[in-house]
């Protein structure tokens, strides 16, 4: 059972990160590590994919890597 101090993988949390700066999928996964959220790897991938589909962030390549970002 997650405690209040654990990291929550929510749409709002992802939105806040992507407004702050462009991030790769790996950057995002680093923010929501399984040991901090208590989710499995598969759950993390599935939930993050659903959130990104809903948010439909802008995409751009930085150093040949695809980054997502949002504007307010």
């Amino acid at each position: 059972t997650p405690s209040a101090s654990d990291v929550l993988l929510t749409e709002d949390a992802v939105r806040r990160y992507l407004i702050r700066k462009p991030m790769t999928t790996k950057d995002l996964l680093k923010k929501f590590q399984t040991k901090r959220t208590g989710l499995s790897s598969e759950q993390t991938v599935n939930v993050l994919a659903q959130i990104l589909k809903r948010l439909n962030p802008e995409r751009k390549n930085i150093n040949d890597k695809m980054h997502f970002y949002l504007t307010e």
Binding site: T25, K26, L29, S41, T44, V45, A49, L52, K53
Partner: peptide
């Protein structure tokens, strides 16, 4: 581990590729 992170990133990108 970083290889697990790589696998998760690849899985996530594969999920999103259908959508993008």
């Amino acid at each position: 581990s970083s290889s697990e992170a790589d696998e998760m990133a690849a899985a996530l990108e594969a999920e999103l590729n259908d959508f993008m």
